[in-house]
């Protein structure tokens, strides 16, 4: 019978916990790329010329329909060969998860805009509002509220996906856990520690997001 050993935890918790800043860096780096690019792509997919819309649909499909881990590995090992440069594991990981997140967030943005409905566009246009003013003053303020809940959910997904960069050697929480596990052969203690650290981080995050969601609920006519 495997015996639980508190000593391992006491000894190695500080080492594993020092991965927290790296986990946060990867997560928020990817979220920043995902939000900025996702909003731009989502807007373009509802407003731009058909050719641009088609190209962006390809981007979205490409990143949604391949595994994130494959994308991370691709950016670390394959893209540098194409570009004839070096990309560090941290950069590769953030960019890969960031682009993947952008694909999903662009769909949230597009869905939010489409979900506001034709009748609001009709009302605004029939009062003489230009396309741009209709978008700015009527559609986006309503769409934004519809985007908050799914975006908050996306942030949680990203934080969990950040652990995948351990595969290419970024020293975040899981990677540090792996290091300890190889030395101590105490997987139960080590990976429980890793899981609890993620649980605390992500629960804190969802609490924060819930506060934002309460202030930004969709309005019905």
């Amino acid at each position: 019978m495997y015996e639980w050993n508190w000593q391992t935890i006491a000894e190695y918790l500080p080492f594993v916990a020092r991965g927290i800043p790296m986990t946060l860096l990867v997560s928020f780096g990817a979220i920043a790329i995902g939000v900025i690019l996702g909003v731009v792509i989502g807007l373009l997919r509802t407003m731009a010329w058909p050719a641009v819309q088609r190209a962006l649909l390809w981007f979205v499909e490409l990143f949604r329909n391949t595994p994130v881990l494959v994308q991370i590995v691709y950016f670390y090992y394959a893209v540098p060969l194409l570009l004839q440069t070096k990309i560090g594991p941290l950069q590769a990981g953030i960019v890969a998860i960031g682009l993947n997140t952008a694909a999903y967030i662009s769909e949230i943005v597009r869905g939010g805009i489409v979900g506001v409905g034709r009748s609001q566009v009709d009302a605004a246009r029939s009062l003489g509002l230009s396309k741009l003013d209709t978008m700015r003053k009527v559609i986006l303020p309503q769409a934004a509220r519809r985007m908050v809940a799914p975006t908050a959910n996306m942030f949680v997904v990203v934080m969990k996906e950040s652990a995948l960069v351990s595969y290419i050697g970024v020293a975040e929480i899981l990677h540090r856990g792996d290091v300890v596990q190889v030395q101590t052969f105490r997987p139960l203690e080590v990976y429980t520690m890793v899981a609890v650290l993620f649980l605390l981080l992500i629960t804190g995050m969802t609490r924060l997001m819930a506060m934002v969601e309460r202030r930004w609920t969709p309005v019905a006519e």
Partner: peptide, 20 residues
């Protein structure tokens, strides 16, 4: 066209007020 629409107003069956 925008100017024309200001001179020919339309009211819809389902109001279409701006809910926000």
């Amino acid at each position: 066209l925008n100017e024309y629409r200001t001179r020919v107003g339309i009211v819809f069956q389902h109001f279409n007020l701006f809910p926000h």
